[in-house]
Amino acid sequence: MNFIKNNLANALTLGNLFSGCVGAVHLVLGDYQTTAICIILSLVLDFFDGFVARALKSNSNLGVQLDSLADMVSFGFVPGLTMFVALAQNSNMDFPWYCYLGFLITVFSCLRLAIFNLDEDQKYYFKGLNTPSNTVLIFGLYYAFKENQSFGFLFDNINFLLGLTVVSSWLLISPIKMIAMKFKSMKLKDNYPKLALLIGAIIILLVFKTVGIPLVIIYYMIVSLLFQQQLK
């Protein structure tokens, strides 16, 4: 019984990793809908591995390392691969050199995860855009485009895609404080940023549906900027 208790969180983390691997394969095969399901599953497992570890008091150094390694695939490699695919599909040539610049997102995701592991200040907020949110932004834009041609202005222009790659890479390691859904206090006034984010995100998704997925991340960044002084 103790074996299950001590390793349940790690099993969820490895499930996140496995889901990310499957999602990457299907993205290369052109099955972006299965990739979307895999990303959602990875997000759920990434949330619950930490939740379970805290609930069962089974936190460990191994779990910390596994979490970052799993995130590197699901939320580091997958968004970089998404940009690679988007750039490749925008070209008449087979994999021109600039397609590989999409993996700058993967490189900076790796750097961001390493910085996060060493930064003891990021307990109740994130410094820079966290990798799951960045994945939702990049893949969410791609998914909306493939589903109903939304954001066509972006995916029909190589320069815009490269610009998004640079912005995404910078956001991952930027000094901007971002809201984390961790509660330091249960006082209402201390949680205004989280409430504003939650209510706004629900409204955006109800109104815009699929298109609203990347818009929620943009809204998340805007709300975080507005509440910089309260994030600590």
Rank of each mutant, 00 (worst) to 15 (best):
K123V: 09
T131H: 06
F145G: 02
L154T: 01
L164D: 02
F155Q: 01
I138L: 09
G163D: 06
S133D: 07
L111D: 11
I138C: 06
F160Y: 12
D121W: 12
T131K: 00
P175Y: 12
G140N: 02
F155S: 02
M186C: 15
L154D: 00
L161Y: 03
L141T: 04
K123Y: 09
N134S: 08
P132F: 00
L118E: 10
A180H: 04
N157K: 00
K189P: 12
T165L: 00
I176V: 15
F145T: 07
G140F: 01
S150R: 11
S133L: 10
E120V: 14
S133Y: 06
M181R: 07
A114R: 09
S168W: 03
T165I: 06
N130M: 06
V167C: 11
S150K: 11
K189R: 14
N117Q: 00
L161A: 09
F160R: 08
D190I: 15
G163A: 08
I115Q: 14
K189M: 14
P175H: 13
L171F: 13
S185Y: 10
L141I: 02
D119K: 05
P132R: 01
S133G: 12
M181S: 12
I158A: 10
N157V: 01
I179N: 00
K123W: 10
L172W: 07
V167S: 09
I115K: 15
T165A: 02
F155V: 07
K189F: 13
Y143A: 09
A144K: 01
K182I: 11
L118M: 11
N134E: 07
Y142E: 03
L172N: 05
A144P: 01
K146D: 07
T135R: 01
L161Q: 08
M178L: 15
P175G: 12
G128P: 01
F153K: 08
Y124C: 05
K182G: 11
D121A: 13
G140V: 03
Y142I: 08
K177S: 09
D121M: 13
P132E: 02
P175K: 14
F155E: 01
L111G: 11
K182Q: 11
F183N: 10
A144I: 01
L172Y: 05
F145I: 08
P175R: 14
V167M: 11
K146L: 10
S174H: 12
I176L: 15
L118H: 10
L111V: 15
Q149D: 14
L161T: 04
V166G: 08
V167R: 10
G140M: 04
G140D: 05
L129N: 06
M178C: 15
V166L: 11
I138S: 03
I138K: 05
F126W: 01
Y192W: 14
V166N: 07
S185C: 11
K182W: 07
